[in-house]
C-alpha cells in the first residue's frame, strides 16, 4: 500500500486515543467485520495521525526522527512495517 492511499483509508475508521495508543474501529455496512478492531502503539498512532494527502515516506521519516529521536533508517523501517500492517486492515 502506498502512503498516499492511507489517507483515504483513514476516513473509513473512527479512532480514539487511549493513553499513548490508538483504538481503531472500521465503519461497516454489514455485520461481517464487526470484530475487526485494531490498536496502535505510540509510534503507530504518530504515523496514523500525521498521514495527510501530500505526505511522503521521507517527510514522515523526518517528523519521526524529530519526535522519537531515532535515525532515518529506523524511521523508514517503522513506516514500511506500519504500511505493511495497515494494508491488512481493510481486506
Amino acid at each position: 500500500m502506498e502512503i498516499q492511499d492511507l489517507n483515504k483509508l483513514k476516513a473509513q475508521f473512527v479512532t480514539r486515543q487511549v493513553g499513548n495508543e490508538l483504538v481503531l474501529v472500521p465503519l461497516s455496512n454489514n455485520v461481517s467485520n464487526m470484530k475487526e478492531l485494531f490498536t496502535m502503539n505510540e509510534t503507530g498512532r504518530f504515523i496514523w495521525e500525521n498521514l495527510t494527502e501530500k505526505m511522503t515516506v521521507d517527510k514522515l521519516a523526518e517528523k519521526m526522527m524529530q519526535e522519537f529521536e531515532v535515525d532515518e533508517e529506523t524511521a523508514i523501517k517503522d513506516i514500511n512495517l506500519f504500511l505493511e500492517k495497515v494494508s491488512q486492515m481493510k481486506k
Binding site: 473512527v14 480514539r16 487511549v18 493513553g19 495508543e21 490508538l22 483504538v23 474501529v25 472500521p26 465503519l27 461497516s28 455496512n29 464487526m34 470484530k35 478492531l37 485494531f38 490498536t39 496502535m40
Partner: peptide, 20 residues
C-alpha cells in the same frame, strides 16, 4: 489495560457501525 482492553471489550458489544 489501555487500548487493548478497550478494543477487546468493544469487540463483544452489539454494534451497527455504519454511523460514525
Amino acid at each position: 489495560s489501555g487500548a487493548l482492553a478497550v478494543s477487546k471489550v468493544l469487540a463483544f458489544c452489539i454494534q451497527n457501525n455504519f454511523d460514525k
